[in-house]
């Protein structure tokens, strides 16, 4: 405690919350509550869903829709950090976040999350339609309650459920234009859903001691490295099948089909190398690190191919 200047400053009651009016937080702490790096992925997939949708939307309303999707995702991230402040405090990767470090009070973070949630949903509803707003509201609820509070601390399949939480933006983007949800946005949802487990488990393999210390039942901690590698390969095969499905079903053209096939083949090849690896030492997990990096490129490229395909169609 003594090492944390925020917890020993004058005006704070011992062990108690600092009055909001005396908060030491500045705007950067609120900004980091939104997990801006995760937000870039959400913005990108949401924007791709919006651009791929048939129909027309005023450019300013498209901008507002993407802004609302990003804000809603940020609100969900703030809920997540509010709930997991004690877990974040014991993980190296997250210990310096505003809540565990004491720069921000839990009540402030919760109020911030609620305000952003309501503002993003209502604004999206007014700007586009209430179908998109309802999907955004459900995605915030799913991430904050179903994933963060309910399932993440209880099941080693938490990342699979988390994948669903992060897969809503393309649906919301699509619904913002069309006012409904058809097969293609559902397949886009399925791509992000199937992509998440191999992406996060590749990371979890080489930072598993962090999760073990925090008591989070991540698959590498509960079922071991070997089982995690096997599941990474299994989900990669599912991902490859789902990724080419929009083309196979005739919903997208050859540009997307060729791109998805090539990108998925490389993904599966890298996942196979992970599955064949036997090292238990995080520093030596080159195959896992390579898959993790490639998975970021993969998702960006798949969605870019989708937009290009729709543009040339």
């Amino acid at each position: 405690m003594a090492s944390n200047p925020h917890l020993t400053q004058p005006g704070r009651a011992p062990g108690g919350a600092l009055p909001a009016a005396l908060s030491t937080a500045d705007w950067r702490d609120y900004w980091s509550l939104l997990k801006p790096r995760v937000m870039t992925l959400v913005v990108f997939t949401g924007a791709c869903g919006l651009f791929a949708a048939p129909g027309h939307i005023h450019p300013f309303l498209a901008f507002v829709a993407i802004l609302c999707i990003a804000t809603g995702a940020g609100a969900a991230a703030a809920f997540n950090q509010w709930w997991e402040a004690d877990i974040d405090a014991v993980m190296k990767r997250t210990a310096s976040r505003p809540l565990p470090s004491g720069r921000l009070e839990p009540d402030q973070a919760l109020a911030f999350a609620i305000i952003l949630s309501v503002a993003s949903v209502v604004t999206l509803g007014f700007a586009t339609n209430w179908v998109a707003a309802a999907w955004l509201a459900f995605s915030i609820f799913f991430y904050a309650v179903v994933y963060t509070i309910w399932l993440k601390p209880r099941t080693p399949q938490n990342i699979v459920i988390g994948g669903a939480a992060g897969a809503f933006p393309p649906i919301i983007g699509w619904a913002a234009v069309t006012g409904d949800v058809t097969a293609l946005p559902l397949l886009l949802f399925a791509i992000v859903f199937a992509w998440t487990p191999p992406h996060f488990w590749a990371l979890a393999l080489f930072v598993r001691s962090d999760y073990a210390n925090a008591g989070i039942p991540m698959l590498p901690v509960t079922h071991g490295v070997r089982e995690t590698r096997r599941q990474i390969l299994a989900y990669s095969l599912v991902l490859a099948a789902v990724a080419v499905a929009p083309w196979a079903l005739g919903l997208l053209g050859a540009v997307y089909g060729l791109s998805a096939t090539l990108l998925s083949l490389v993904f599966v090849a890298l996942a196979a190398r992970v599955a064949a690896s036997t090292t238990e030492e995080p520093a030596e997990m080159q195959a896992e690190k390579r898959l993790f990096k490639y998975s970021l490129l993969y998702l960006a490229a798949i969605f870019a191919a989708l937009v290009v395909d729709r543009s040339v169609a």
């Binding site: 939307i57 005023h58 309303l61 802004l67 700007a127």
Partner: peptide, 16 residues
């Protein structure tokens, strides 16, 4: 910015 956003939304919806 929020006030400007709603102003922009109103104008865009009227235009659209």
């Amino acid at each position: 910015a929020f006030a400007c956003l709603f102003y922009g939304i109103t104008i865009s919806r009227m235009a659209g």
